[in-house]
Design a protein around this nucleic acid. Structure first.
Lengths: 392, 392
DNA sequence: ATCTTTGTTAGTAATGTTAACTAACTGTGT
DNA sequence: ACACAGTTAGTTAACATTACTAACAAAGAT
């Protein structure tokens, strides 16, 4: 058991302070040493020393003078977002979507590839490696400046141990795949469920910005949720938190598929399609079931009825989540983003009737980029900046 | 904004290390300086210094020699549970239940009083003060050694701001009552909901010991839950987490009382009584509705049916909680402790059918003492041991 | 008598603090 | 226009605190 050694001379505090300084810089964009000192309660000499080190490390830059407030002009500091880069990868269906980003999370290059089906675990790793090479070439980032890669995929993952227990789209099964990929790429790798990655993306750059209790509700092939409580991602005791597809919502006695939950069986997209079989038969590839259903509902009573039923049961799910977690914001994603204004209004009204503390109800704002942004940030989170030079 | 000053010479690390040392002592009961050093990765001289200070402070004691393992005998250290004391108070219905405890949470004296009804806020504070005086006298603890008092009550509390917005049993309404009581008693006071206090009690001394993700489900006059995730109490963005009485479980269109949720309306004890009106009329004060219902169910079909219905809907509630939070353990409390073995087995079977990760299902193990124990620990939590001597 | 284990002492390295300094600029009175 | 006081930014130097390593003393096992 390796406990991080608080070496007597305690690097621990230094690290904390360094992170705090960096945080101030990131927060303010541009700030002087003196202002950092005021904000952090650290003495000016101390801030100076820490800043100087971080300039040496390439994390900070002096970018000119600020305006005087009646004395010497301050030297403004800026976070050097270019110091390092991060890669992200998302498997969605049969496509692999990758990007390389700076430390602000801005994409520097992007790459997409259709994978051969059915997926073969080993080939997929090679695809990942090839994609990374290409991104590095395209962006001109040298490999040494890459901090790591975040990988999101549909299926069942155990982020803690780095294993993937079920994932048809990648062909990875059991065994700690994370280490295998790390070995192949020579990089730290973080593997997580795609919904979790999207949740993280929306939390740091999308609809969730500024909130500390966020639930990201996703309805697509399945129904799931990502949960951030008091600013921390909550995963549950066996990484099964947010499996809201198993809530007891809908016709309880009708659950043909043993692997799916009751809610998911009836109110995920396949479940809805099944219910709409009579009148919603011919769907083009890539079109939205909900959009189609809304269109039909304008003319056909049975479609209108089904749509209302779907909204109502989704709202039941939200009410349960809200009762238990009292989040500040509930982010609607997946096919839910196609619900029209009227639908959202209806759902909101129901919730106001049912529960005392209705959170903000907002649609996901990052679209398909959410997952990639989250994947990139999963690495940033794991590398709280100053840990960089701990390689000693 | 007062940020805890990491004085250059950093007391912060020292405090952390001191707490770690103390934790080792508490964990092992008796332990030597050398063993603490091995466990904590702190050097032996450092441990010695910290221990000596804590002996000065009265927090630790040397209690004799241990067995030699081939060398000098170790001097065993013990946590001095008597160093300070904590008071706890619980308002339940019209009775006030108080106790004074040592730092292990062991009760040293207890006191109960029936309050005049209807409760008058100011008189109740005097009752609290009188009770505390009596407990101090009885236990022989000098007032200076009292760290604080935890107060639990039925109603709506905002622990953050120390206000009570609705509480018939104490007559406290709005306004930050916590400060008022602190001024009257001359002690730090923590005010919280009774279910939260019971949750904390079971977490630290009852069924929840050893788990980090715990949900405490309470069915009584209302239905509520206390939630501990990753070892932290989770309260929600407006302290409304765990209001599971508002889940959409049961007959959705039948909610006569606007203030209660759907689940609570039908499946709390008053709700069940309402449903059982036909055959469960004459209940003595203090007897258990569930016990009576179980007795009736052995002979009468309608009682049997209702009981099964109650169990089933409680199980729905559990399934929803489990789907969202994936806790390690679900503690059943309130009237749920009267469910017999068969009932628990039935519920467990349902859950195994419905959700993938069924947690331990355990009845609350502390009985009516849970709330008081929790109240006492709420103070201990707020006083992480070594903060004691920070009064400088 | 030698080896082990526990606990302490002495000297050192790391970190951050305060006090005092230099640098650089604003504003005011003449 | 210009000197000078006042203000703000950043640095230097001396000091305090903390925990470390190395060496030693104490006490017991073999």
């Amino acid at each position: 058991m390796q406990v991080p050694k608080k070496t007597g001379n305690s690097k621990l505090v230094k690290k904390l302070n360094k992170e705090e300084v960096l945080q101030q810089v990131v927060l303010h964009g541009q700030i002087s040493r003196a202002d950092i000192s005021k904000q952090t309660q650290l003495s000016r000499p101390c801030v100076s020393a820490l800043v100087d080190e971080m300039i040496q490390e390439g994390l900070l830059q002096e970018v000119g003078m600020g305006d005087s407030k009646g004395g010497r002009k301050p030297i403004l500091l800026e976070y050097n977002y270019q110091a390092y880069a991060i890669a992200g990868a998302i498997f969605e269906g049969s496509t692999l979507d990758m990007a390389i980003a700076n430390m602000k999370g801005e994409f520097l290059a992007r790459y997409r590839k259709r994978l051969a089906q059915p997926a073969n675990g080993e080939t997929v790793i090679e695809d990942l490696a090839a994609g990374l090479d290409r991104l590095l070439r395209e962006s001109g980032i040298p490999r040494e400046r890459l901090l790591g890669m975040g990988v999101g995929l549909q299926g069942v993952t155990q982020r803690g141990s780095g294993t993937v227990s079920f994932s048809p789209s990648t062909g990875w099964m059991g065994s700690p795949i994370q280490q295998t990929i790390e070995a192949r790429l020579g990089l730290p790798v973080i593997i997580d469920n795609d919904v979790n990655m999207m949740t993280l993306g929306e939390y740091v750059r999308g609809a969730g910005v500024g909130h500390t209790n966020v639930v990201y509700m996703y309805v697509g092939t399945g129904i799931g949720a990502g949960i951030i409580l008091d600013g921390q991602f909550y995963r549950g005791s066996r990484e099964a938190a947010g499996e809201i597809g198993f809530m007891m919502i809908g016709p309880v006695h009708n659950r043909p598929n043993g692997a799916s939950g009751v809610f998911e069986t009836h109110y995920s997209i396949p479940g809805i399609q099944e219910q709409a079989k009579g009148f919603l038969s011919d769907l083009q590839e890539g079109s939205s079931v909900i959009e189609e259903l809304i269109r039909h509902a304008k003319q056909h009573a049975e479609a209108k009825e089904l749509l209302a039923d779907v909204y109502r049961h989704w709202a039941y799910g939200m009410a349960n989540i809200i009762s238990i977690l009292n989040p500040e914001i509930l982010i609607l994603s997946g096919e839910m983003v196609h619900v029209d204004g009227e639908g959202v209004k209806q759902i909101h009204e129901w919730l106001r009737e049912w529960v005392p503390e209705v959170p903000n109800l907002e649609k996901a704002s990052l679209g398909e980029r959410a997952g990639l942004i989250g994947a990139v940030h999963s690495v940033l989170e794991a590398f709280p900046f100053t840990r960089l030079l701990d390689k000693e």
